[in-house]
Simulated assay, not measured.
Amino acid sequence: MKQVDFSLPSGCVLRRATSFDNCPIRWLVLSAKLEPTQLRWQQFWVIECNGDLVACGQLRNFSSAQELGSLVVARAWRGRGLGSFLTQHLINTATKPLYLECLGQRLARFYNRFGFVAISFEDLPRSLLPKFRFSHLAKKLLGVPVVFMQYRDNTANL
């Protein structure tokens, strides 16, 4: 996977979240209808544009892996590359094998551009199984279009 070079619009900065970002992060995550129970501002990176927090994403740590999660761009700021910039930054920051779960093929295609590939629930590391179990049951029993993905750095093979 060739790394794509993304840049931020003028007036925007990427930074680690601070305790002051806790409420804006929660608001962004809730506005995107994402699961809000495992939000720890200490794990987040945020993009601030002209003084407003407009995007966030976190790397959750597990014993043998990390999860890219809670990636949200405020509706008014979508389509400007913020999600791509933040995704690439989180990939570059990860220190363990990286996984995620997303809803639907549109998001799976988005993450596929960065080197994520769809995997089965059974192929997830043991440390992630309890976290993803509910999604797996919703997929199996209710047909919810959850996609489990793993980041595979293919640049070593180029």
Rank of each mutant, 00 (worst) to 15 (best):
M1D: 05
K2H: 08
V4H: 09
D5H: 08
F6C: 04
S7V: 10
S7G: 07
L8Q: 07
P9V: 09
G11W: 11
D21K: 06
P24K: 04
P24W: 03
P24V: 01
W27L: 00
L28D: 00
V29G: 00
L30Y: 02
L30W: 01
K33W: 01
L34R: 00
P36H: 09
P36I: 09
Q38E: 14
L39Y: 07
Q43K: 07
Q43T: 06
F44N: 00
V46P: 00
C49P: 08
G51Y: 14
D52C: 05
L53G: 00
L53D: 01
L53E: 02
V54E: 03
A55R: 05
A55P: 01
C56L: 03
G57D: 08
G57A: 11
Q66M: 13
E67V: 15
L68E: 09
G69K: 04
G69W: 01
G69E: 10
S70W: 03
S70H: 06
L71K: 01
A74I: 00
A74V: 00
A74E: 00
R75Q: 06
W77M: 03
W77D: 02
R78H: 03
G79T: 06
R80H: 09
R80Y: 10
L82N: 00
G83Q: 01
S84Y: 00
Q88I: 07
H89L: 10
L90V: 05
I91T: 07
N92L: 04
T93M: 11
T93N: 07
T93C: 08
A94Q: 12
A94H: 10
T95N: 13
P97T: 13
L98E: 11
L100S: 11
C102Y: 10
L103V: 07
G104N: 08
F110Q: 00
R113N: 06
R113A: 06
F114V: 01
F114H: 04
V117C: 05
A118W: 03
A118Y: 04
S120P: 07
S120A: 12
F121Y: 15
E122Q: 13
L124G: 14
L124M: 14
P125N: 12
R126C: 14
R126Q: 15
R126K: 15
K131Q: 15
F132T: 11
L137M: 14
V144H: 13
P145Q: 13
P145V: 11
V147D: 10
V147F: 07
F148R: 09
F148G: 09
R152M: 09
D153W: 09
T155E: 06
T155N: 08
T155M: 06
A156C: 08
A156Q: 10
A156S: 12
N157H: 11
L158Y: 11
